[in-house]
Design a protein around this nucleic acid. Sequence first.
DNA 1: CATGAATGAGTTTTCATTCAT
DNA 2: GATGAATGAAAACTCATTCAT
Lengths: 218, 218, 218, 218
Amino acid sequence: MPAPSEVTAPERLRCDAARNRERVLSAASEVYGERGPAFTMEEVASRAGVGIGTVYRRFPTKGALLDAIALPYLERILSLARAAGEHREPGERLETFVRTFAERHASERMGSGRLWDSTLGRPLRDEIARVVDSLLDAARKAGRLRPDVTYRDVSVLLWTLTSLIDATDQIAPMVWRRHLDLLLDGLRPGGPRPLATPPVNAEEWERVVTSSAALRLH
Amino acid sequence: MPAPSEVTAPERLRCDAARNRERVLSAASEVYGERGPAFTMEEVASRAGVGIGTVYRRFPTKGALLDAIALPYLERILSLARAAGEHREPGERLETFVRTFAERHASERMGSGRLWDSTLGRPLRDEIARVVDSLLDAARKAGRLRPDVTYRDVSVLLWTLTSLIDATDQIAPMVWRRHLDLLLDGLRPGGPRPLATPPVNAEEWERVVTSSAALRLH
Amino acid sequence: MPAPSEVTAPERLRCDAARNRERVLSAASEVYGERGPAFTMEEVASRAGVGIGTVYRRFPTKGALLDAIALPYLERILSLARAAGEHREPGERLETFVRTFAERHASERMGSGRLWDSTLGRPLRDEIARVVDSLLDAARKAGRLRPDVTYRDVSVLLWTLTSLIDATDQIAPMVWRRHLDLLLDGLRPGGPRPLATPPVNAEEWERVVTSSAALRLH
Amino acid sequence: MPAPSEVTAPERLRCDAARNRERVLSAASEVYGERGPAFTMEEVASRAGVGIGTVYRRFPTKGALLDAIALPYLERILSLARAAGEHREPGERLETFVRTFAERHASERMGSGRLWDSTLGRPLRDEIARVVDSLLDAARKAGRLRPDVTYRDVSVLLWTLTSLIDATDQIAPMVWRRHLDLLLDGLRPGGPRPLATPPVNAEEWERVVTSSAALRLH
DNA sequence: CATGAATGAGTTTTCATTCAT
DNA sequence: GATGAATGAAAACTCATTCAT
């Protein structure tokens, strides 16, 4: 049975390699989530259970690895946006997207910062732009969004939001939720409803202010 | 002759020491403004015109030095808040504070990130809280602010804003201004006035997305 | 059916193997010519169009590969020596050999340094010794060579010459030619003819001294 | 006694630093002599008995260290040339210089290769050129040197000679001496005296050919 | 046999921190 | 007190070599 073996052998090889690639990638995402871009290649390697040489075989540069982390990240964003587009109430779609995105980011420590960068994800980003634009349209038509908000505004918003989540979620998980409510609802009076999240209380705030949380924002 | 010598010598020393402390501090602020927390202790020393040992005598740790930078930073914030409190229109005071703070941050590269941290500035921070609270009050009474916004909400807002400014001001200076408009004006429709800043255009956005700007957000 | 399969399969394999061996060898010579012993095994593999494992199957060590490169090198030397032995004027044969060898080395970047080493080429080297000895004899009999010069003297001369060629040919191609003239003609006065190559001029010398040419001599 | 202490303290500091600098330098020369430019910074550090950081404080780059090795090397060459210029017999001066240079190079493992390079030693090199030129003049006037030999010819000769010495002195110390005799005396017949060094014998040659001596020539 | 994935010791360089002077 | 020399633990990256497929 040379055929099958010949077929499967390379397949398996690729399988192992691919598995390792995945392991490195998820280890990198993990470490990135914990320590930001200051993570060590060696740490990624050891957490992936491979030698450092293996990491470098797949990603010849730390930057390349960061770029690679970005792609699944973007893909998840896209799928969240698409899922939000299925929401029954068109007026809720945008908010649903932003909120689920934030929750997912907090729970899965999706990458951030550098990950919005890199030209690698261009087509993906374009597609995300299209989908999010449709969410904006729906929200606008439902009278739930001021007409002058663009995709880029939302993007910047998500961008700063992820930084805030990274910096505070572990020590004061309500901070970013409150901030998100404010962002979504606006600062002006006359809003139709009170903010869903209560103001940040003293203990949480204490933790934020005394920890090095702010450090991570830079 | 213990008195004179002990009086003058330490006095002088204290003088020199104080002068050195100031030099180190302003050198550190300068370098921090230029390179963020990645600056080198040696660089601070040489820019202050002292030996690196002197830096360490005053600030036993790089972290301590960062903490120390925060104080003048907080002082400037306080003075901006106070100045804004003098604004003729009480309803404008909060917005004036936030906007001048942002502009100052952008132009003088006031420290950020880590600088919000540290327990050193506690009394200062408390005073800032008081003053900003009065701005909030005024804005609320003038019907320019939703009633449930707290000092901490504003603080988080400023916090994320400085990150955005640090990351984008040099390559796309309109990005954070637009975002700030949105923050101040809210995302809901029916706002009393159109946003002052036009949407981010394609070129600027391109620059942000292709540069490593996002990197600096972490 | 053990016979046919065993006969053809190994035959083919041997064929392929031999072809691979050759490919690896010429790739290695090529890379060696370009970068000296600093070349990478991976580079040899990829230029030969085989996997790196294949390289290691044929040559268990980088040193072994270097040794193997030496053989064709020695063969070319031998053929040059034999060709020089055909020269009409017996008195010219030695000089012809040395000069054509040097030119070939310069133009084809024949291997050098390590290539004189290795015990692999023993019989070949012995044969070269025999042929060059005959050139020496002829030169001696023609009164063109001092009687006490041996094959080993010539060998050392060629050895240092190749180093000089490697180091200077690309940046100052006259340097080694002048040196060779001196070597062949002697340093003492009263020589029958002036040196054919003019002294190295300032520009060329400058290039040698300021470049990292000397580095390559080690 | 504040004055003396103040005077000596910095002096001592400088002393220690200078001592370390010297240690690093001589360690580097030593290692360079043994392994050529492939030496390790760590090795230099440990042999100098200092931390690797100290090496980098004095010589911010491996290249800088190599450059620094070159200077004392050039100085020694200059002093040898000057000493040779004092030789009673003007006709012997050049040869004396070349021979003592070679012996010193062999015994003290003076640097080589890269050391001829670098623009650092420019003035020193110019001075060497002047002195050696005077040796050439003297030799020429004494009828001991063919009139067309220039300083650059001698320089190339010394250059290749050091390579040969580095490569062979430890395993076959007569090889380079014999070669030097040949260089100095010329290859043509009719020379006034037989070569002082006997031909390389089989054992020595064997050692050269089988060792990796040749490797060091590249 | 061929492949190329995996390995990890080794290299250069940086920088926060200590300590002798 | 001030100085800056010394330290050495990392960190990013390379490459000869081994080994599973």
